[in-house]
Design a protein around this nucleic acid. Structure first.
Lengths: 151, 151
DNA sequence: GTCTATACCCGGATAGAC
DNA sequence: GTCTATCCGGGTATAGAC
């Protein structure tokens, strides 16, 4: 989708109906013939991101590898990561099962322990967001922080 | 500060120069005689939040108790929590040492292990944000997730 | 499906009078 | 330290012609 490229090239706030239209070579009002509004675009983006993140984790074995893959994906797609994870999900307009499918690889790696899966997700989410927001000192050894959290 | 009450009563987006002025019974342009702009207000709020969070953790012993206290503070001050933690810190305009002071109690509880302290913070931050954003299922046992992460 | 025109709302910030 | 008047920018979305 064009929205994704716009998001990553110009940042989260640049995703507006006007700039998206401009990128597509049309005028903003024309967008409403294709989507119902901004919310729908964000839901589509979140779905795409969740699917990709699930696939990424499915390719790894072991918590350490999954953590590394999670971080890499997020740092490679920071704006999309935020759109997909830092706001309430519009579950009513999301393909049923998509959210669970994205979480499945991790849950399997943890033998179905949902509490540990939630804790792992939160740890990874927190580490990624704090890194993206520049909250750690410049000289912080983030690999070591990940290792400390997973150990 | 009046900004804090506004934030918690009406949400993060309600913190505008106009609405803050209205709450103070003056007009928006008058605010600029007291602060340089919106950024300064956010920095003051972040400083207040960090101080309080540090004090809150200083009153607890043990990681479990600190986790509980962290969560409680964040859920009691969700909008302020976000202002203070989900954006880059304007360190140049923050009292020197304030950031370190807020982190000190946790660092001490972990015998100065910065990596474990960063992992703990990230875990707590992730759990809080995912909870605030409604990302966990309604029936999720979040106490158990916290316990799983700290165990 | 695209356009133009437009309505409507919001925001941060400044100038200059009092 | 407050006001009024204003500038300038931004956003979502609709109506109606083509």
């Amino acid at each position: 989708m064009a929205a994704r490229a716009l998001l990553e090239e110009e940042g989260e706030e640049a995703l507006t109906m006007r700039s998206l239209a401009e990128r597509l070579g049309i005028k903003a009002p024309s967008l409403y013939k294709h989507v119902s509004g901004r919310q729908e675009i964000e839901t589509l983006l979140a779905a795409e991101a969740l699917t990709e993140m699930g696939e990424t984790l499915a390719n790894e074995s072991g918590l350490e590898a999954m953590g590394r893959a999670y971080r890499t994906w997020a740092l490679d797609n920071p704006a999309l990561y935020r759109v997909a994870t830092t706001r309430p999900l519009d579950r009513e307009n999301l393909t049923p099962g998509l959210e669970d499918a994205a979480a499945a690889p991790l849950l399997e790696a943890l033998d179905g322990d949902r509490n540990r899966a939630r804790a792992f997700w939160a740890l990874a989410h927190g580490l990624v967001l704090l890194e993206l927001d520049g909250r750690f000192p410049e000289d912080a050894d983030l690999e070591a922080a990940w290792a400390a959290g997973l150990g």
